[in-house]
Amino acid sequence: MTVPPIQRLLGPVAVFAAGAVGAVLVAFVDPHEPGHYPTCPSLTLTGWYCPGCGGLRMAHSLLHGDVPHAFDMNPLVLLLLPVFGYLWVRWTVSAVRGVPLRSALIRPGVLYGFLVLLGLYWITRNLPFAQVLAP
C-alpha cells in the first residue's frame, strides 16, 4: 500500500510551520530582555552554558539582520543552520518522491561525530580561555 504524497509531506510541513511560528515569536518578542522566556535549565542548575545557550538571542539577531551579533551569541548553531536547512530539503524531496531518506549526514559515524562536537563545544565554551564562545 502506497502512502499518498500529501501524507508523506505532513512531517516536513509540520516542522517548517513550527519553525516559522517560532521565528515569528522570537522576531517580535526580544529574548535580550529578561522575563520573556524561561532561563536555560542547564545554566540554572549547573552554571554552565549548554550548546544551545544564546540560541534564542542568536535567532532574534539573525532575524533582524545582525549577523555579527548572532555569531557572538551562538556560533555553532549559526554555522549549523545551513546543514539543518539541507537536511530539511533532503527530507522534503524524499517525501515528495516517496523514497526513504538516505543521507551521508545521518549515518551513525556522522551522528556520533556530531555528538562529540556538541560535547566539546559544551565544555570549551565554559572554559576561561574560550569566553568568546559564551553568549
Rank of each mutant, 00 (worst) to 15 (best):
H60A: 01
L105S: 06
L62K: 01
P75G: 06
S61N: 13
R97D: 05
F114R: 07
C53Y: 00
T124R: 03
I106Y: 05
Y86M: 06
L120I: 02
D66R: 15
I123G: 02
Y121Q: 07
L78I: 15
R90C: 11
T92Y: 06
W88Y: 13
V93L: 14
L118V: 09
W88P: 00
V93D: 11
H64D: 00
P75D: 03
N74M: 06
H69V: 15
F129E: 12
G65E: 05
S103P: 04
A104G: 13
R57A: 07
P82R: 02
I123V: 15
L111V: 15
H69M: 14
V67P: 02
R107F: 00
F129S: 14
P51D: 07
A104M: 13
A104L: 12
H69Q: 15
V89G: 00
T124H: 03
G55I: 04
A95E: 01
L62D: 06
M73K: 13
G113E: 03
R125A: 05
G98F: 03
N74V: 03
R97M: 10
L101D: 08
C50V: 01
L101N: 09
A104Q: 12
V110P: 02
L120R: 02
S103Y: 12
L81F: 08
G98A: 04
A70G: 14
G113R: 08
H69F: 13
L62M: 10
I106P: 00
G119F: 05
V96M: 13
G54C: 01
G52V: 10
L115Q: 03
H60S: 02
A95V: 04
R97S: 11
C50R: 04
F114E: 03
W91Y: 13
Q131W: 09
R107A: 15
G47C: 00
A130L: 12
R57T: 09
N74C: 06
V77K: 09
L111M: 11
D72G: 13
V83C: 09
L78M: 12
L120P: 04
S94F: 01
V99F: 05
T124W: 12
L62S: 07
F71W: 15
M73L: 08
A95T: 04
D72F: 06
S94Y: 01
A104C: 02
P100R: 15
S94E: 01
D66I: 11
L87H: 07
H69C: 10
H64N: 06
L105V: 09
L87T: 04
S103Q: 05
L115G: 08
L56P: 01
T92Q: 04
R125T: 07
L78G: 10
L81K: 02
V116F: 08
Q131F: 05
G98Y: 09
G52A: 14
Y86V: 14
N74F: 04
G109N: 11
V96I: 13
V96E: 01
L111P: 00
W88S: 12
L80W: 11
L118S: 08
V116I: 15
L127G: 10
C53S: 02
G113Y: 07
V77Y: 14
W88E: 15
